[in-house]
Design a protein around this nucleic acid. Structure first.
Lengths: 173, 173
DNA sequence: TATTGTTATACTCTATAACTATA
DNA sequence: TATAGTTATAGAGTATAACAATA
């Protein structure tokens, strides 16, 4: 009732947690098991490794995904890229600007629609992608080495299932 | 050589992908299998559901985590909260301000250190936590219902392993 | 009328430097 | 000297409204 504040219906004070608290550790309550919390922390850790490896080429995750999607689908329009990556087309403009200014891709005229651009990698962009895919593979391997191949393999299917939950819902138009 | 742009060492053009392209679908190259990309999309999907459920109480993920950690560790200082949740203490200030202004927690004097605060939930804050934990459980159950209990169970251990990769490295002081 | 790319804008999150008051 | 909380500030990421050119 008036003890201090820690009591709720669904939070388990649990012997283990109490022991931790006595040793000066923190109690996280239901937090540690929550999927959203786990996903956030896992993503931060993985992105930290990504940043560390891609720092020397000055490429960020979003830039790598844009370049890859254009590499695999030459001539794509900005709107289609924005839909594919769930980036708002309005936010994509500046990102494309940067990649174009750095000489990795170019906005070419679209053959049948004078409103839109057809995006292509430049020669320099294609050369860059060779490097980027190598770094990405290295990044992936480092994760596998650290959490184990079985843990890594176990992640793929459930994460895809989660990702597909919002698959049809974000028409990024 | 001069075909178009899609060829790289690690990207597999693969029959399935080519077939997809012919049907007007997009090729994602190595992207779809990358852990970082999967994590990001999974996290977006899960957070979308979180937002949908917590909208009526106007609570965001970070706010829920702060309130929970204070609930489970009454009297915690801001620095300790920031370390526990990997939020920079400098960014935590405004978040605590909001939660205090909304009447969910209070900055009390720390008994042995006049520089720091001891954080406690208010009566209203404790009442709110009952609601929040119920919504959180509902949120969790919805995810389980949609991806299956086995897929959900499979995620826990590997995600924790990933999260722990940066465990010791972010002293958020 | 609808769509493509665009600008302007705003809000959140994150990150760094520098201050104050205590320790 | 070091630490707790704070301010100011800047950069990403993300969101909406509105516009010109074109379909």
């Amino acid at each position: 009732m008036s003890t201090s504040a820690a009591r709720t219906e669904s939070a388990e004070p649990s012997p283990a947690v109490e022991a931790g608290r006595l040793r000066g550790e923190l109690a996280y309550g239901p937090l540690r098991q929550r999927l959203g919390y786990l996903l956030r922390r896992a993503q931060i850790a993985v992105f930290q490794d990504f940043f560390a490896l891609f720092e020397k080429v000055d490429i960020r995750p979003a830039q790598y995904s844009i370049l890859t999607i254009v590499e695999c689908n030459p001539g794509l329009s900005q709107t289609r890229v924005s839909e594919a990556l769930a980036i708002k087309k309005t936010n994509l403009v500046a990102m494309i600007d940067v990649l174009e200014a750095r000489g990795f891709l170019r906005r070419a005229e679209a053959p049948n629609d004078r409103r839109s651009y057809a995006l292509f990698l430049t020669e320099e962009g294609r050369k860059l992608m060779g490097t980027l895919h190598k770094i990405a593979a290295q990044h992936e391997q480092r994760i596998i080495d650290r959490i184990g191949a079985d843990a890594y393999a176990q992640l793929q299917a459930p994460l895809e299932a989660l990702a597909n939950l919002s698959a049809g819902r974000d028409e990024q138009a």
